[in-house]
Design a protein around this nucleic acid. Sequence first.
DNA 1: TGACAAATAGTCAGCGCTGAGTATACTGAT
DNA 2: ATCAGTATACTCAGCGCTGACTATTTGTCA
Lengths: 189, 189
Amino acid sequence: MIPLYILGLLLRFGPQHGYQIKKLIEEQLKDFTQIKLPTVYYHLEKMEASGLITATCEKQGERPEKTVYQVSNIGADKFGELLSQSLQIKYHPTFDIDCTFYFSDSLDQNEMVNSLEIHIGVMKKTLEKLNIHHRETLEYMPESYKISANIIFEHHIMHYKAELAWAEQSCNTLKEVKSYGKDQDHRDQ
Amino acid sequence: MIPLYILGLLLRFGPQHGYQIKKLIEEQLKDFTQIKLPTVYYHLEKMEASGLITATCEKQGERPEKTVYQVSNIGADKFGELLSQSLQIKYHPTFDIDCTFYFSDSLDQNEMVNSLEIHIGVMKKTLEKLNIHHRETLEYMPESYKISANIIFEHHIMHYKAELAWAEQSCNTLKEVKSYGKDQDHRDQ
DNA sequence: TGACAAATAGTCAGCGCTGAGTATACTGAT
DNA sequence: ATCAGTATACTCAGCGCTGACTATTTGTCA
């Protein structure tokens, strides 16, 4: 996926250094990816080696050189190819927290409720931020890009909502079990 | 997360070989993880090196040896530690398809609609399977595990539903745009 | 105008993971 | 009795990724 981003950004915004590409990704896609700088450089080198992009050294004054990358013809073709391939949508999420619940017999219920409550708070804040950013983005975005921007934002918003709903539901379930347990204890005494 | 699974499974089901651990993960968690065999062995070796588990060679007849692993005291402590840590829930999904939509100005709308329609089909089938497997699991599962099993299944089901809803919504949006575009073409002619 | 933080630009060792491969044992069809 | 196919059990080279590091340049506030 990263080569696709790099090729696409270089085609859309013209030749760039590795660092600039990282900045572009941060600006353009901050809510949707977390690509690290060394990862960008790693792919730039690989892509240069395979001829998808060409590197030229830029010397301003006599300061250290910066390497500027631009897409070759082969790279432009590859972009189209990768983009078509990316239409094969896959969705097989895994959640670390499933492991926690799988072994929940070794855990205290209060801790679990607590942890879910924190999670609920985080998800609510994340959703607020996303909604605000969504509105902001639509303001300065040219009409032709709005539809796809909407689709991307909606994708994330819907999954965050699902995560929130799950956390709230599970939290309530655990609380009910707890109070039921207490009732039993009470009756037992 | 994998060391946590391995420690937990070894504690719950007793000493096992690498291959058996893989089988256990497949049986117990088939809908929720896709851990590969070499990955299991990788972690077993690391965990043995750090004293979390101990390996003993088993020779049946004079056939090749199997290595059986069991949890040490240190490992049992580590299990508790990792399990507590795992209560810090993180959710920052990234979707490859976002990249596709980000560059959707280079794509044909029909292809995108098509791709989403396929995705909708896959998600529907996945949900059906998950629901069936959910019911089956609850049947043979002892009462004490049902709550956590429900929570895990619900987690996945809710996210698959979100994914499905998003795909349907986006598909409709794109279709509307297309027919609107056609209208315009028609008027332009 | 000197000093300290932040931004820019890039490198590298090493970790986690897995596709592809090896080798033996079992099982069922012919 | 044999052969194919599957299950069991494990190994290893090499890829993708990134934390931690280096080094320079540019604010920025006193």
